[in-house]
Design a protein around this nucleic acid. Structure first.
Lengths: 367, 367
DNA sequence: ACGTTTTACTGAATCGTTTAAGTAAGATAC
DNA sequence: GTATCTTACTTAAACGATTCAGTAAAACGT
């Protein structure tokens, strides 16, 4: 058994990174003392501490290895953000970016790093990324309740904050008043006198369709957000005397202007043409606006348009987009703070629903 | 010595996450076998493997702990992106976001996660975040060569790819043709007939000033990018017969429209007023445009404006911004791929300089 | 001068894995 | 029927730290 015939290469030149053990050997102390030099300066004499740092510098030891430390401490010092899609996609969505900004603010407050984990339904690996991420907890963003990765997260039994999809009981969560915002958007259009509506939605289920979605499919949307927004529209539109069944709801597999453009091209070709289009996100709204331009339709003269999210481009587009504002950064910040509270054994607080607000700009007018 | 009086709580209820040891005990095999069940299915019989998974499910074991595994494997499966500033700031800068998109693309290709590390000069902790991040390598973005965090990164002796600041020898790097792009921008203005220029720059050193920077200070800029862009402007402007010393260069401590607005307000109050302003980034250009609006100046009628970066808003602003395009996403992607190559022991390739290109839109005209 | 505290360390267990090397039993070869 | 190869595991040593429970020596109090 462990005879260890050779003393092994002790430190074969200055090469590679050294370990605390090597530093300890060099100085002639125990590894515990080296550890203390870095973590509890009061546990050793000033002189020895300096000798240790000096030797560390000489040997190329840059301080405790994060992995060894994390393993022992049972804390990695990072919070994970689980994003529904591929990560690269998150960065193209201004709403997601603002949310991340908020989470990173919370991480900074707590001195934690940010670990981005792609959910990537259908991606190679599946929920492997979730299982292999060295984090202390997760903020789960925008993942449908049906997504298998969410089970993977739950399975890991780490502290979790669910964002925008507060359907798992027990879990801490935060969301926004989707329904109220959507209702306000549709009411605004109804008050302007619109009666011919159309809706451009993002995907309703994990296996998305492209095309018109009937009410049954709408009901079965597996994302809480989506369902709530559609419900808000429905309530307001029915109140205006228009049967919901008459309102075409177009499902886009991806939340991109390109998809929405294609959707709008189909919707605007209908006779009679809708006079107002509600989009479930600003990204989609921008696509619709482009399509309208292609049809030679002026906004808001020929077509009124309402988005959702109030991303910063919304104020700068031409015409500026009427949309439902939601506090993306604050949502991220609060989600992050809840997670931090959880990590510190504190109280994450009640599930919260942040307010939304209709911001009327230049893309809506009477028909 | 380790008498271990009590057998310790073996598994006090289904609570907490279980370990491979517990699963092994439950099934009556060694931990090695449990490990094999997850990592090398061919090493054990199908039946046993299923019994192990079944027991794992029962005990709440969700697979090997990432930390233990990473420690042993000496691979964490994550690449770190070191960002100069606070992380929350990265998300407000469209150029940084696009870059991250590229890196995340590369990470996805390689099946790696993304670990975001704030450089945060002057932040509490300093380079602590760098030292404590459990990553396999770093992509260093936009950090001045003088920044102490960059030394921290080097010290960790992990594979590193330097972006936009290829000054450390030996390190793999990627950048863009800053000088050429800047030169083209200034040449464009000169050709239009402009002779009274002003420049709005971001910070020149780690300890930024706000205000006009004389040529000496410009030379001492510790970011390669900044120096190159200024040099490009200088070359073209001098070629047009204007002494560089006559061109006011205003330094903004932060790369935000707000800072640039303040800068422009000062520059535009000068007599004679500049007829063209060059901004080192689009973010800064947007601020200048706002200031111009405040002065009642029309762009490009009264003032021509050129940015740098070609972020997506540049095409949508009014007027659309003439700017220097750089391939942000591609830069991130290539940086990420180089790092991946390094991690896999391959060849990261030569330091690359990606091309820039002037995109003429509506913000420039003859004076 | 003697007991108590403080200071400055060391030893050894532990965190949760992976993996090279070993082994016993059964299958295959000739 | 013996030698060799597989199969299906196990043993034990890492990986790189932290931390608790010592302990010997020095400092302190009276």
């Amino acid at each position: 058994m462990g005879v260890n015939p050779e003393p092994r290469k002790k430190k074969k030149g200055g090469e590679g990174r050294a370990t605390s053990k090597e530093v300890a050997a060099e100085v002639g102390v125990s590894v515990a003392t080296v550890s203390n030099a870095y973590n509890r300066p009061d546990q050793l004499s000033e002189g020895l501490r300096e000798r240790i740092f000096e030797a560390a510098g000489r040997l190329g030891y840059s301080g405790p290895d994060p992995l060894g430390r994390s393993l022992r401490r049972r804390r990695s010092g990072a919070i994970g953000v689980l994003y529904a899609d591929r990560l690269s996609y998150a960065f193209t969505d201004p709403a997601a970016v603002m949310f991340l900004e908020g989470v990173s603010l919370a991480a900074e407050e707590a001195g934690l790093n940010l670990f981005l984990v792609p959910g990537g339904y259908g991606l190679s690996g599946g929920s492997e990324a979730v299982l292999s991420a060295a984090v202390d907890g997760f903020v789960v963003y925008c993942v449908s309740a049906e997504d298998p990765v969410i089970s993977a997260v739950i399975e890991r039994k780490l502290p979790v904050v669910l964002v925008d999809d507060p359907s798992r009981d027990g879990a801490t969560s935060i969301g926004i008043d989707d329904e109220g915002g959507a209702r306000a958007a549709a009411e605004h259009l109804a008050e302007l006198g619109h009666r011919r509506f159309a809706v451009v939605s993002f995907k309703l289920t994990l296996e998305p369709d492209r095309g018109l979605a009937d009410p049954a499919r709408q009901e079965s949307a597996d994302n809480e957000d989506t369902r709530s927004r559609l419900k808000g529209y429905k309530t307001a539109i029915e109140k205006a005397g228009v049967p919901w069944g008459d309102v075409p709801v177009y499902e886009c597999p991806e939340n991109t202007p390109e998809e929405a453009k294609a959707a709008a091209e189909e919707l605007l070709a209908k006779e009679p043409r809708p006079t107002a289009i509600l989009a479930l996100s600003d990204q989609l709204a921008f696509g619709v606006m482009e399509a309208a331009k292609g049809f030679g339709l002026s906004i808001p003269g020929d077509l009124s348009m309402v988005g959702f999210d109030d991303v910063s481009e919304a104020a700068r587009s031409s015409p500026p987009l009427t949309t439902v504002h939601q506090p993306h950064v604050e949502k991220g910040l609060k989600a992050g703070r809840k997670l931090v509270a959880l990590l510190e054994g504190g109280d994450p607080g009640e599930p919260e629903l942040l307010p939304t607000k209709l911001v009327v700009r230049g893309s809506t007018a009477s028909p």
